[in-house]
Amino acid sequence: MKGKVVSYLAAKKYGFIQGDDGESYFLHFSELLDKKDEGKLVKGSMVHFDPTPTPKGLAAKAISLPLE
């Protein structure tokens, strides 16, 4: 699924993505496929991810940034 980063707290390594389906997904650095892309996780960045339901809500897994 595609989505847009709505927040990312680099110090805490987490944030949120708004998916194309309108839902909010929890984003964690550990799910970023290329850790070098962390600096690109800023508000408004477009990402691809696997939407995954968890006991705490919806989460983004296997997060990647589109090729530039």
Rank of each mutant, 00 (worst) to 15 (best):
L9N: 15
S30W: 09
I17T: 01
L41R: 00
H28C: 08
H48L: 15
I17L: 05
K13L: 04
M1W: 04
G22I: 02
K56I: 08
G44V: 02
G19D: 04
V6I: 14
D20N: 09
A11P: 09
Q18N: 08
K56N: 11
Y25L: 01
G22Q: 05
H48W: 14
K2M: 11
E31L: 04
K4Q: 10
K13W: 04
G44C: 07
S7W: 15
F16L: 06
K35P: 15
Y25C: 02
F16K: 05
K12A: 08
I63K: 00
T54N: 07
H28S: 12
G39E: 13
L32F: 04
Y14E: 05
A60Y: 01
V5P: 02
F29P: 06
M1A: 07
F16N: 04
H28R: 07
G15D: 00
V42Y: 09
P55Y: 10
K61N: 07
V42P: 02
F29D: 03
P66L: 15
F16I: 08
A60R: 00
E68L: 11
D21Y: 03
G22H: 05
L33G: 04
I17A: 05
G22V: 02
M1N: 05
V47K: 00
K4W: 15
F29V: 12
K40D: 04
F49M: 01
E38T: 05
F29W: 12
M1F: 07
G39Y: 14
D50T: 15
L27I: 06
E38Y: 05
P55S: 12
V5R: 01
P66N: 14
I63T: 03
E68A: 13
K61A: 09
S7T: 12
D21H: 04
M1G: 08
A59S: 10
D37E: 07
G15E: 00
E38P: 03
H28T: 07
S24L: 15
A59T: 11
S30P: 03
D34T: 05
G3I: 02
M46N: 10
E38C: 05
K61I: 10
V6Y: 08
D37N: 08
E38R: 05
K4R: 14
F26C: 04
K36I: 07
K40T: 04
P51N: 04
G22Y: 04
D34W: 06
G57M: 04
D37F: 08
G15A: 02
P66V: 15
K56L: 10
M46W: 12
K35R: 09
D34K: 06
G15Y: 03
V42Q: 11
E38G: 05
E68W: 12
L65N: 03
E68C: 11
E38V: 10
G39V: 14
A59P: 02
F16C: 07
G19P: 00
S24N: 12
F26S: 03
K12S: 08
L9T: 13
L65T: 07
A59V: 15
K40E: 05
M1V: 06
Y14A: 04
L33T: 08
A11I: 12
Y14F: 10
S7P: 00
A10I: 12
H28K: 07
G15H: 02
S24G: 06
E38H: 07
G22F: 05
L33W: 05
H48R: 12
P66R: 13
S24M: 15
F49A: 00
A10E: 09
D50F: 15
S30K: 11
Q18E: 10
E23Y: 14
E23F: 14
D50A: 14
L27N: 00
L58E: 03
K56V: 08
K2H: 11
S7Y: 15
Y8A: 03
K35H: 08
F26I: 06
E23C: 13
G39W: 14
D34E: 08
K13R: 12
G39C: 13
F26E: 03
P55Q: 10
P53G: 08
V42C: 10
F49W: 00
L67E: 13
M46C: 11
V5N: 01
F29L: 10
G22K: 05
K12Y: 10
L33E: 06
A10S: 12
L32S: 02
Y25F: 03
M1L: 08
P53D: 11
A60E: 01
A59R: 15
S64Q: 09
K13Q: 07
K61S: 10
G44Q: 04
V42N: 08
V47A: 04
S24Y: 14
K2E: 07
L33N: 08
E31N: 11
K13F: 05
G19E: 00
D50V: 15
K35S: 09
G3L: 01
L33R: 09
D20V: 10
K36L: 09
A62G: 11
I17F: 02
K43E: 09
S64N: 08
V5Q: 01
G39P: 14
F26K: 03
K61D: 03
E68P: 12
P55G: 10
K35F: 08
